[in-house]
Amino acid sequence: MTAGEGTNAADSWLIDVSADATSRQYIRDLWRLREFLTEVPRSELRARNMNTVLGNLWYLLSPILQVGVYFLVFGKLLDVSRGLNNFLGFLTLGVFLFRFSQQATMAGARSLTSNESLIRSIRFPRAALPISAVSAEVIALVPALVVALMMALLSGETITWTWLLLIPYTALLVMFTMGVSFVAARLNETFRDIQQILPIMFRLLFYLSGILYSVERFSEPDALGKLPPEWVLSLADYFPLNPWYSLTTLAKSAVLAEVSAPPEIWISAIAWAFGALVFGFIFFKRGERRYGRV
């Protein structure tokens, strides 16, 4: 190596491998991986039902059976459906959307830890992994939503133009879920306990997101009969703080006539969707260099 060889003009074409990518470069790198992002989720879904008899039918059957169980237990046995005209439609849409968010988040949480070898061998923007995981669940959500819409029709809803709003509203839920998945993925990489905590967290959230009942029942004063009046009066008001509640309710309002979305709902939904996505992405990218370290 001769010293003082001088730098070529080609020098300026060198990329800095040792530095962290800027957000813009990172997103550009992700864009370059778009084939990865479209193909991997699809092949993942194909592989999932490979050894089953019913195959891809399970994507419809599984949520339908779940809804059946909830309907029987909560709708008939325990009868929490009072106040709701179309409990079946309400339940179906809520369950499918919530399930999507839960499964996508858990898949996102596992996306780094189950791809450790890939991360250790090839340098690529790791965000591609949680994005693929969530995308797979989005693809699986589509047939489920079609079923939910059919259920809504069957149980008495009429098709109006607002049904189209289901698409952007679902998109908000997807954005929010992506943000949460980014956070879960990075946290799970360091603390595997997250994989245990998440199912419990989602169980609790499920019961607190107005899926099995209408929140209306909590807007009457003294509905529970034991709490001080000022507390009970505002119990219904606390629900919009729960992003899963606002996002699923907003989506339901597009399809179900009796569900309305007052400002506090859609403000909460939009704020959470964008906030979680931006925060989650930044949080995830900050940890980029540490993923897969021995």
């Binding site: 060198l14 990329i15 491998v17 090839i122 340098r123």
Partner: peptide
């Protein structure tokens, strides 16, 4: 290959090296 960070110094390359 860009798989682990540097404590100090810099590595620049024409493209991301394959390891």
């Amino acid at each position: 290959a860009g798989l682990i960070p540097l404590e100090s110094g810099r590595i620049r390359a024409r493209s991301i090296p394959t390891l």
